[in-house]
Design a protein around this nucleic acid. Structure first.
Lengths: 336, 336
DNA sequence: TTGTATGCGTTATCAT
DNA sequence: ATGATAACGCATACAA
């Protein structure tokens, strides 16, 4: 590939001048400028970003480490991050950690070696030494969607507390009393928070939270199915199941269908996370919707400020309840 | 950040020796080796991939330019590509072209500047000059999912012809005669091929392909809805609608629901592309399933061979029909 | 086996 | 306004 040298020779100027017109850092005589541009066009020259990064110590790249791009929540999040990053002139490299600390560290490691300017991390349960080092070294790091305790890192996330409280009230109003919750991993801040919000809301309504109505899942479809199966096998099964994320809801739906149970007649269903397809399920699923695109946008902005050395603080966005028909609503309630 | 120099000083050796143990290119005395490794650990040294790339002229990175990561087909494709790439020691940088040639070129351009070792491209309609240049310059390029005519570039894609023929036969057997098709863009090879396969299969069964039953869509949800609307407004509406991709199917479903029509009693529905959620729709949707993960895997492998300078050829994978209940099947047919 | 020195392509400093 | 040149961090050819 052609380099600055080739362009310089072609235009009859020095490499310095080529660099100057390309970055228009310093004024250049219009005539020379044109000659350089002509040479660039003729040679199809493309600046080598690798060399530039080495020299400038900046890659205009940010890393994004998420759980799994196949999870629609993360898909949308990744897309939002990418859009905002592009708007700010950054590329983004994505890593799918699959909720495994070792794989998270694999990606954080390679991203560090690639000298990304900043990192957006949806942390897995544990605080790995690598993450701790990053914090110690003061590298631009922002937690996304989740937080890790005891670390001074800005986080951009959603607080679903109010929406969950509203959902519980909604379920009560519809006459449900035996409400179960399929939780996310207690090791994840999102898992914990949703569970706490649920139990608090239940108590606030004078409803008991029976231990057997709290099924521990792991945000994966299989655990949703298993959890639903155990709940439905109970001597006194719940009359409503609230599922902690969309993947587990898919699994719970599988199980409910497999048993020939009807929603909401036999059991009501609600989901934390909303999806376009929920409108088309039978019945349409009542869900807690997170402001995913806003989440991604804000995360990039916070990281950008952090990379520019400005002080930043965490961001918390509210979720909202989307009422449909899967909980026994009479007429579909508020249109989605 | 610590560099080789720091490690060398710390271990009391030369930078060359550090480089040697890190890449174990040349045998190094066990003692020195240990000292180097100790220094690396102590300093938390991470090799600078940027500098390495500049020196070796390789980034161990491939670019992937797709239509839109929000399309579940591309989501799964991206994930498959990423997995296979990681297995081969490559990172992948993704770009969402949104089916726009200008945005495709934006990504191809930045990926070129970042000196990716190879590029996987789901080309938009037009052959842009940039793509033509890449081919001319002999850069490792593989077309994914789609092809572009008149270019000597290996392609890894799916042939849905047989599955579409099977679907048409299936529809006929179920008594459907007025079958409509909401097509993809004629400018996309995938759009054209599906349309051709459909019309050929219809003719083979002695069924007329009325022009008004061929609705032109663009693989986006809105066009699916609009197409379905026009079809259902026809004096003699179709008794079955085959939709060219999953996003347009979502749109078509919206329209059918909005009109209060029932599937398959009022109109049968089938979709090119299969999704996990299709099982849970009412009724479950009969679909043509593409071997997406295999598609991604093979694409990376072909590209890898191409990057290693070996001769490669195109790959075509077959799709298959998944019969469910949305076409009036009696008992759900073959379980999905 | 190990060290010294060069160059990858770029930007930036210092002359001119 | 422009040119010569050093330096970024690393891998490697060559020397020892």
């Amino acid at each position: 590939m052609a380099s600055v040298k080739d362009v310089a020779r072609h235009a009859g100027v020095s490499v310095a001048t080529v660099s100057r017109v390309l970055n228009d850092s310093v004024p250049v005589l219009p005539g020379t400028r044109d000659r350089v541009l002509a040479a660039v066009a003729e040679l199809g020259y493309r600046p080598n970003a690798v060399a530039r990064s080495l020299r400038t110590d900046a890659t205009r790249t940010i890393g994004l480490v998420i759980g799994d791009i196949l999870n629609p929540f993360f898909t949308e999040l990744a897309r939002a991050v990418e859009d905002q990053a592009r708007a700010l002139g950054y590329s983004v490299v994505i890593g799918n950690a699959d909720e495994r600390p070792d794989r998270q560290d694999h990606y954080v490691g390679t991203l560090l070696e690639r000298r990304v300017d900043g990192l957006l991390l949806c942390p897995t349960a544990e605080v790995t030494p690598l993450v701790r080092d990053m914090v110690r070294d003061g590298r631009p790091l922002v937690f996304l969607d989740r937080t890790l305790p005891g670390l001074d890192v800005p986080a951009v996330r959603v607080d679903g507390g109010a929406a969950i409280a509203e959902l519980v009230r909604h379920l009560c109003a519809l006459g449900h009393r035996r409400v179960a919750f399929i939780t996310g991993p207690a090791l994840l801040s999102t898992g914990r928070e949703r569970t706490e919000a649920f139990t608090a809301a239940m108590r606030a309504h004078g409803l008991p939270v029976r231990p057997e109505y709290l099924e521990a899942g792991d945000f994966q479809a299989a655990s949703g199915r298993a959890g639903a199966a155990r709940l439905l096998d109970l001597p006194e099964p719940p009359d409503a199941i609230f599922v902690g994320d969309n993947l587990m809801a898919l699994g719970a739906l599988d199980e409910i269908r497999a048993r020939g149970l009807r929603i909401p007649a036999d059991v009501a269903l609600a989901c934390y996370d909303d999806l376009p397809w929920f409108t088309h399920l039978d019945p349409p699923v009542t869900a807690v919707a997170q402001p995913v695109r806003e989440l991604g946008r804000r995360a990039v902005r916070v990281l950008a400020e952090r990379m520019e050395g400005r002080p930043v603080s965490s961001v918390v966005l509210p979720a909202r309840l989307v009422v449909r028909r899967s909980c026994g609503e009479r007429d579909g309630g508020v249109p989605a």
